[in-house]
Design a protein around this nucleic acid. Structure first.
Lengths: 192, 192
DNA sequence: TCGGTCACTTTCATTATGGAAGCGACTCTA
DNA sequence: TAGAGTCGCTTCCATAATGAAAGTGACCGA
């Protein structure tokens, strides 16, 4: 991947994706969050080629998502432990989990997300820490920061226009959204 | 990518990554959420090769993240609009945004996330809709669902053991975590 | 009529990936 | 104590994915 747009280095999403922008990295993180530590644990849990696993673990160590800890000398052997930086990707994994569950359903239910202590089901959604209330993605917009360049301003303006036009499913009151969905469902069935 | 572990088809994260497990797809979604619709808008915003963009847009349409809408016949031209399924990936993008901001900081500040109406800054964190309270990833654990196979049980057990050992940064008592959050908030304001 | 734009497609060199085999230092079993 | 097995890799190679560049056909505006 080679992004060239002027706003890219300023965009936290683009920066994040240089670190975690491939499936293997995220699946390795998932397994690490589930307690995997050693080379063969990752290999078995993923069905990944060993050469690929070596490359990914090296990159993740150099990106400080994992740290090597020696557990044996002669020959030197290491475990790969999550760093705080790696661990902080848990919200990304959890939101992916929820999206996969909602939008790529299967017959069988193999896993459940639960509270660690009570074992009650949990359902992660977004919350705004600044205002102490649940956060609907449609309420979020971009604003230019102090160091914005023209490419940033163009992005921000385009997003404002799109939100202003009501382009997105939930940039509307909940009732209107339900109506819209019903209408779409109706027109879908007509088109078929 | 070719995952072969028995628990993979049952894991919503693995399923999600078959759809959105590459950087281009997520960056295209980012731009779509910022109002991009047409081929050249995506191309300029990403600096992506046109052949790659064609392939990615096709795949995203077939995965129902985007839908084609004809805006001109002769020659037929289409806009790519987010579907509800695509739009629901906004929480993934937003959590990535926050992680990039926190862990891959740069000198300059090009963008800010703000409330669409008030323009107040917002800060997305996770929240548990089932219990109506903020959710620390360390409180979440996996449980086997009704259709769990041995691979699923092995994963769940490994995760329980890891949490029991206190392997992870925030698998600590809630009081310690609250202190930690307060300390983080304090150091944030000092750093500015 | 001429250049420019838009939305692609095609071609081709470069790079990434997956599969398989090998290796060195153990450990476990007979 | 010989032999087999395990662990954590590395190396090699065929195949697949990607990026750069050039080409295309229908429009549009001067």
């Amino acid at each position: 991947m080679k992004v060239t747009d002027d706003s890219s280095p300023l965009c936290p999403v683009a920066r994040a994706l240089t670190c975690v922008g491939d499936s293997w990295t995220l699946l390795i993180l998932r397994d690490a969050m589930q307690g995997a530590r050693r080379f063969d644990e990752f290999q078995r849990g993923l069905g990944i080629a060993s050469s690929m696993l070596t490359r990914r673990l090296e990159r993740m160590v150099s990106n400080e998502l994992l740290e090597k800890r020696c557990y044996q000398r002669h020959p030197p052997r290491h475990e790969y432990h999550l760093t705080a930086k790696g661990h902080d990707l848990a919200p990304v994994i959890l939101t992916l989990y929820r999206w996969g569950e909602q939008h790529l359903p299967i017959e069988a239910s193999g896993f459940q997300l639960v509270d660690r202590r009570t074992l009650d089901p949990v359902e992660p959604i977004l919350y705004d820490r600044c205002h102490d209330r649940p956060l609907s993605p449609g309420d979020v917009c971009l604003a230019p920061g102090p160091d914005a360049n023209p490419a940033v301003h163009a992005r921000v303006e385009r997003m404002r226009n799109a939100l202003g036009r009501g382009d997105f499913p939930d940039s509307q009151p909940a009732a209107a959204r339900a109506d819209c969905r019903a209408a779409m469902a109706a027109s879908d069935s007509i088109n078929e």
